[in-house]
Design a protein around this nucleic acid. Structure first.
Lengths: 144, 144
DNA sequence: TCGTATTAGTTGATTTTGTAACTAACAAGC
DNA sequence: GCTTGTTAGTTACAAAATCAACTAATACGA
């Protein structure tokens, strides 16, 4: 029985964070997966378009800190679901302006509502103080 | 632009948790990947064996909350690296008792040391109060 | 002791992700 | 104009995660 050190996985921050992230994501993930057949990256991209309006893939990459291939695939998937439309920019044809379709906006509103409800449910496990501090701590760790 | 609700991704707990988990894991992950060619699941399994001594794959599944296919593949990988040995149990030949080899124990000690140092580094971004509360909160969320 | 259910663990097929190389459009210097 | 460099986005291939089906050993009731 190795008592090599007093280190304990159960207190290892990356481990705890991963565990909490997994558990907390599962229910909401299941929601958009079963209701709209969407993946996490698709939800994130849809969210950014819904929240901030028309933008290019590059802008989404920067804002969401996502790699361009992830965004590219998510955009293609959302397009094939008719949740967004693209239009090549006139003055720079490398850019594609992305915008949600009415259908995409409906999905956005529904997911936003659902997300808010999930967040409330999670928050209720913690005191108001804990809630505030938790978000602060996570921000520090994620270097936001 | 859509002011559908006051919901903001930047405060959505699952999102923040995933972000913090990703960022905080990256450096350590790089360490055991480059030094020992190990995957996250392998590190977790190795850790459990190092910390708790000999156990079966099933016990690891339960303790680490991992699916059996993940553990099965991690065990196979660790075995091929000669970091663990398996021995079929006598009184129930479905069970395999797993234990680290001396080489595996050396790796365990090294990774444990590295993890502890890395955890310290992360902890320094937070006050002692925040540290304690953060771990409490994460525990609540992960239903530990 | 036979049939059924359960448990431990593995394997294979399918999906998803990650990495790197690629195309196309533009910009800037010469 | 032509080269060189940079940027936006896609594609192709490899690594990995997921899910379901499978084998083998045991338990347990009729």
């Amino acid at each position: 029985m190795s008592e090599t050190s007093d280190f304990d996985l159960k207190n290892f921050l990356p481990y705890l964070l991963n565990l909490a992230a997994e558990v907390s994501s599962l229910e909401f993930q299941t929601y958009y997966k079963t209701h709209y057949g969407m993946l996490r990256m698709e939800w994130r991209v849809l969210f950014h378009l819904g929240q901030y309006g028309q933008m290019t893939a590059k802008q989404i990459c920067d804002r969401a800190r996502l790699h361009k291939t992830k965004v590219s695939r998510a955009v293609a998937a959302l397009e094939s679901k008719r949740y967004l439309k693209r239009s090549v920019s006139d003055h720079d044809r490398r850019h594609e302006d992305l915008a949600l379709t009415p259908a995409g906006q409906r999905v956005f509103r529904d997911l936003t509502t659902a997300a808010a409800a999930f967040d409330d449910k999670l928050s209720q496990k913690l005191t108001p103080d804990e809630n505030a501090m938790l978000r602060t701590c996570l921000g520090k760790i994620a270097k936001l």
